[in-house]
Design a protein around this nucleic acid. Structure first.
Lengths: 237, 237
DNA sequence: GTCCGAATTTGACCCAGATCAAGTTGAAGT
DNA sequence: ACTTCAACTTGATCTGGGTCAAATTCGGAC
């Protein structure tokens, strides 16, 4: 896998991320001086949990699954999509990765040496502020996820997942599942078999799933069942 | 509940926290100029989820439970003990609290206005660095907690909880439960009844629980069952 | 279009853990 | 010591969700 230079358009995409967009050009260049880019085929392990965190990863194309293992069991922790960073916390603390990562599709990843990230963090207050904002947001996202897991049943989690992915507003709404059902099941904390049954249960609330296409015929009805709440389901705050 | 000044010894305890100990005296004073302290009786609500985050809280005595509610259900998210801060992420992002907090015992809490925290963060790079470290650590703690919840059964979670609280090393080890069993149950994601049964199950691995006193007769044996792992159970990294 | 292997669904069954209903224990107040 | 009330434990039962096995469907490769 040969290293490659970062394309200018790519650099622009990355700079547009809230993590990078306020920093000085000088800092930005310092960060990208040691950076490189790689394309990966699907299902390639990028990171193994426990390894030292040498790079901050930025995904610019494709999709990456973050997962964790223990005692022969495996669970999906999150799916990462362009353009965003992952494993920021490990980079900051210079601590081992807590999660493994693999590509799901053909993906393009920018690797920024962790040491440079920490260096620029120390010298650019705007970048420092951005990192804190990003970390605080990630922290809050994980707390929300914990509440979701501990306070809701699997059918409720699925219902809220669907509502989050639906263009809210009027009556009929539809969207395409962005990952395989078995990964969705693992992410939601259930088995693939049980996801099938949960989908069937939600048919009673006007949800139809055909392949990856999900259609909600009565958003009102599903909302009444799912009881979504900003403090769990709004990922933007 | 009258506000009170922060005692010098208390100030010293707080300054000793990794979050504050590197900052300039000037910054520290700026942070404490608007601070005040309160004593609370047990079972007082300090924070309600959804409220705006006006203060960074520091507990200097007692204990505080962080919990969350949804649709009539409630779960314990964490128990906070002296000396440490809580709800840092909400303060940083100036976002609503995701969790509620109540005192478990008579407790003493220092309240630092969030606006001052953000102000000092912007001017003191050492403090900024410390906040990032703290946030990254908290983030990683929650990720570990998620792995614990999704990858382990309730008996396994209990076994690892006990091992974490035991002075590791030789054969016989003992410790005192620092919270009521029903809160421990909720924290571990199970019912009180089920915690009782889980304890009984672990008797087979040399665990004896009498009231709040937990004794492990054979740490080896329990460890073989619990399979603790740094990437889930080591809260220090 | 056909074939092949993986993903998904379905059905039957099972188990961890929840719920419900009594007990017990235990600690604080009198 | 006695009362009282909450916390805890125990037993019985129920159920959400997992497991296992057998279809069925789907998506690529040819």
């Amino acid at each position: 896998m040969p290293r490659a230079v970062v394309k200018p358009t790519e650099e622009a995409d990355i700079r547009a991320l809230s993590l990078f967009n306020g920093m000085t050009e000088e800092s930005f260049q310092a960060l990208f001086r040691g950076a490189y880019v790689q394309n990966f085929p699907p299902m390639i392990d990028l990171i193994t949990e426990g390894d030292p965190s040498d790079f901050l990863h930025v995904i610019t194309h494709g999709s990456v699954e973050l997962f964790a293992e223990w005692n022969g069991r495996e669970t999906t922790m999150a799916t990462v999509r362009p353009v965003s960073t992952f494993i920021l916390a490990a980079t900051i603390r210079d601590a081992p990765y807590l999660m493994s990562a693999r590509t799901l599709e053909k993906s393009r990843i920018v690797l920024l040496p962790s040491i440079d990230v920490r260096e620029v963090f120390a010298t650019d207050p705007v970048f420092a502020r951005a990192i804190v904002d990003e970390l605080a947001m990630c922290y809050r996202a994980v707390i929300k996820n914990t509440k979701n897991l501990k306070l809701r049943t699997s059918v409720e989690r699925l219902a809220n997942f669907i509502l989050r992915n639906v263009s809210n507003g009027d009556g009929l709404a539809t969207f395409e599942l962005s990952m395989e059902k078995r990964r969705l099941a693992s992410f939601l904390g259930m088995t693939p078999e049980n996801l099938s049954r949960a989908i069937k249960t939600l048919q009673g609330y006007g949800v139809k799933v055909e392949g990856a296409q999900v259609t909600v015929h009565d958003v009102e009805d599903l909302t009444a069942f799912a009881k979504p709440e900003a403090l769990i389901d709004d990922y933007s705050t």
